[in-house]
Design a protein around this nucleic acid. Sequence first.
DNA 1: TGACCAACGTTAGTTGCACCAACGATTGGA
DNA 2: TCCAATCGTTGGTGCAACTAACGTTGGTCA
Lengths: 151, 151
Amino acid sequence: MDLMADDSPPTRLRTMASWLMTQVAVGADRVVGERLATADTRRHHYRVLAALDESGPSSQAEVARNCGVHSSDVVAVVNDLVGKGLVDRSPDPADRRRNTITITAVGVGKLRELDALLADVQDELLAPLTTDERTELVRLLGLVLEHQGRS
Amino acid sequence: MDLMADDSPPTRLRTMASWLMTQVAVGADRVVGERLATADTRRHHYRVLAALDESGPSSQAEVARNCGVHSSDVVAVVNDLVGKGLVDRSPDPADRRRNTITITAVGVGKLRELDALLADVQDELLAPLTTDERTELVRLLGLVLEHQGRS
DNA sequence: TGACCAACGTTAGTTGCACCAACGATTGGA
DNA sequence: TCCAATCGTTGGTGCAACTAACGTTGGTCA
């Protein structure tokens, strides 16, 4: 931790939803980033692995659409993951524009490890909330996010 | 809007609080950024103006602590704001290390304008929520944020 | 068949924000 | 008086989101 309001932030901000969202996200991102770093991973990597695990072998463009990472960034991520043996990249015989990305057994193992890691982080982040409050927060954020998707 | 999940994001992510927070924040940041840009302003500028309005004339270090902007970034922001006539910077006679930053009348006017602008944004962001849900969301985020502050 | 547009992967950027390291000047306390 | 801390400032870093452009390939339709 470094800065973090010694004094009180403007009350104006304390009640402004968009400010709360970004501040909470900054804190969450920091913790997530630190924790993933202990496993030599970044957020993008986790997202791509998760998308592949849930959707099965996909083209890079599909991965990009599924996990909200730009296709131009997927390139670098897949390069990394291939280098680590967590996914395979092979040309799609049916469409030579595409690469088929497949998560490997090692990749699945890594993903499970990261899942456990991130589960811990969730618990830390939501520590001050009851179980009901946690699910309510997730629900509300889900609604807001869904609304953002259509605009 | 540019990417935004045409397909469904991994369900794993859809229920992970930290992911929801950052995704919602990304969307909120984009809208806030765009809207502030129409007033030739960025988030940092608004934060500094708000802190000055609520705490009165302050040193740059105080501003930094009050609004969660790094003091090294406050320098550039204050430079901008001085250039636009929205704040004054003058050396503190009682402590020659410090500058006293004071919001000007024009600055207050600008701040009011930005307040109105951002109020609209809040409404758009929280459109899918009832009034009760909005206050509940703010409350929950506040709790999480407060918890982050002590760590 | 050929022309054309769309999709794919890739490269090489830019922008915004958080954050860090180091410095000279100044201050306050031991 | 010396030392540690604070302040403003400069010049960075890292990460994520995003854009522009390009060559290749595929599907469409005149």
